[in-house]
Computed example of a mutant assay.
Amino acid sequence: MNIPYSTITDWVSNTCQLITPLYQSLLKEAMDSAYLHVDETPIQVLDKDKQGQTHRGYYWVYHNSLKDLVFFEYQLGRGREGPADMLKDFKGHIQTDGYSGYNFLNKEKDITLFHCWAHARRKFYDALKNDEARATYALEQIQLLYNLERNAREASLEADEVLSLRQREAVPVLTALHEWMKLAYMEVTSKSAIGKALAYGIKLWNGLTAYTTDGKLNIDNNKVENAIRPVALGRKNYLFAGSHEAAQRSAMLYSLLGTCKLNDINSFAWMKDVLERIAMHPINQISQLLPHNWTHKA
């Protein structure tokens, strides 16, 4: 059967309207945490006011790694307005990359902003061709930190045990690395790749080392970056969203299906069951249908 594109679009739109209460419930549960990973990624969107070109919008992504939940929100831009509104009542730790758009969080008394070692490591990797000796040394020291994290995971250590391990073994490595970086920076040109890598680490040092103060925190922001990967794959297939409304509907689906993935839930089985039940489900118990709370009923 040849089904008109407009009909399929209406089906998706109507489905998203039906599950909007679930999306809103997921937002509440995802934000009910003292620790979030935050990142953003672009999406091209058709805009009726921009003839012949697309608008560059952004998905802002909030990952609750303590509960394995992910929430996508579409915003027209990359400015602070989106996260400022989303995080206005948040209290706790926020982990991000080094993007300056998050710096406003440093002014919030109840928020501790800290950063990601994967981004710092990537910059030294990119500097290998520029200064192999210094870049290699930095990468070796960073690998020591990651080895500790792997050992902690393999040993299934509790948060207090992870904290003790980091204080005992990671902090000395970090202290020595910081001193080396400051000395090395004075020996290189600031515009070189190695100079930029060193400057990045030195500038964000307090944020890069904050993970050692709490065993529940992660060394990097890879959890939220992994959640964003389907968007990168999608960009290669659908190229753009048909409207700003469509981009937000996609954010809704990325959130709910992404949370299915994080909780090893069959997304098709979950969606089919929920769509058959949600119209009759009590709105004050809507959270029961969220992927991580879902119990399949034959």
Rank of each mutant, 00 (worst) to 15 (best):
Y5K: 15
S6L: 09
T7W: 10
T9K: 12
D10F: 11
V12A: 06
C16G: 10
C16E: 08
T20W: 09
T20L: 14
S25P: 02
L27A: 12
K28H: 09
K28I: 10
E29M: 03
A30H: 00
D32L: 09
V38R: 04
E40T: 04
T41F: 02
L46Q: 10
K50P: 10
W60H: 07
H63E: 11
N64V: 00
N64C: 01
V70G: 06
E73L: 11
L76T: 11
G77W: 06
G79Q: 13
G79N: 14
E81S: 15
D85S: 12
D85Q: 15
D85N: 15
L87N: 05
L87H: 05
H93E: 11
S100W: 02
S100G: 08
Y102E: 04
F104K: 08
F104Q: 06
L105R: 04
N106G: 05
E108D: 09
E108P: 10
E108L: 10
I111C: 02
T112G: 00
T112M: 06
H115M: 05
C116G: 01
A127M: 01
K129W: 00
K129L: 09
R134Y: 01
T136V: 09
Y137K: 13
Y137I: 09
Y146W: 06
Y146T: 04
R150Y: 12
N151W: 07
N151V: 04
A155K: 14
S156A: 14
L157N: 07
L163K: 11
L165F: 05
R166D: 03
Q167N: 12
R168K: 15
E169A: 13
E169M: 08
E169I: 01
P172G: 04
P172F: 03
V173R: 02
V173H: 02
A176S: 15
L177H: 10
E179N: 13
W180K: 12
Y185A: 10
S190C: 06
S192Q: 03
I194A: 00
G195A: 03
K196T: 00
A197L: 00
A197W: 00
K203Y: 09
L208W: 03
L208A: 01
T209K: 08
T212E: 01
T212V: 12
T213K: 13
T213N: 13
V224H: 03
I228S: 02
P230K: 02
V231Q: 10
F240W: 08
A241H: 05
G242T: 03
G242S: 03
A246M: 08
A247I: 07
S250V: 04
A251H: 06
A251G: 11
A251S: 06
L253P: 03
L257V: 11
C260N: 08
K261R: 15
I265V: 15
N266T: 02
A269E: 13
W270I: 05
K272D: 15
K272C: 07
D273F: 03
V274R: 08
Q285W: 00
I286T: 02
S287I: 04
Q288D: 15
L289I: 07
P291I: 03
H292Q: 14
N293V: 07
